[in-house]
Amino acid sequence: MELKVIHSVELPFILNLPNDIYEIKLDINGANYQIHLNVSNTAYKVITTYQGKEAYIIVNEDEINTLSEKEKKIIEKN
């Protein structure tokens, strides 16, 4: 079994980097970590309902037409 932790963040500013996965090395209190930073200018975080609870999904620009009207309105607000 493999566990994967994914954090999705919408930045309050424009990040002028091409879409790509960047290898980032971190040193936190003497412990070294290497993380993969996936920069995407074409992905959107959408609030939806999953098993009766609010959940976030990530959609690319070409997938927006597959969303419900309610989900599309949420994207338009962001």
Rank of each mutant, 00 (worst) to 15 (best):
residue 44 Y to Q: 06
residue 40 S to K: 10
residue 37 L to H: 04
residue 62 D to A: 12
residue 78 N to F: 01
residue 74 I to E: 05
residue 72 K to A: 01
residue 9 V to K: 08
residue 16 N to L: 04
residue 57 I to G: 00
residue 16 N to E: 15
residue 17 L to P: 01
residue 43 A to H: 11
residue 12 P to Y: 02
residue 56 Y to I: 15
residue 19 N to K: 14
residue 50 Y to Q: 15
residue 33 Y to V: 10
residue 39 V to G: 02
residue 64 I to M: 03
residue 14 I to H: 07
residue 4 K to P: 02
residue 43 A to M: 07
residue 60 N to H: 14
residue 32 N to G: 11
residue 56 Y to P: 03
residue 25 K to N: 14
residue 60 N to C: 02
residue 17 L to I: 03
residue 10 E to S: 10
residue 75 I to Q: 01
residue 78 N to T: 12
residue 17 L to T: 05
residue 68 S to V: 11
residue 3 L to S: 09
residue 28 I to F: 06
residue 57 I to P: 00
residue 48 T to S: 08
residue 3 L to H: 11
residue 33 Y to W: 12
residue 10 E to G: 09
residue 71 E to T: 06
residue 25 K to I: 03
residue 28 I to H: 02
residue 45 K to R: 14
residue 9 V to T: 12
residue 59 V to R: 03
residue 70 K to W: 03
residue 10 E to K: 13
residue 35 I to P: 00
residue 33 Y to F: 15
residue 55 A to T: 11
residue 69 E to Y: 08
residue 47 I to C: 10
residue 61 E to A: 08
residue 47 I to E: 06
residue 12 P to A: 03
residue 28 I to P: 04
residue 16 N to H: 09
residue 32 N to K: 15
residue 51 Q to C: 06
residue 3 L to V: 14
residue 55 A to F: 03
residue 23 E to S: 10
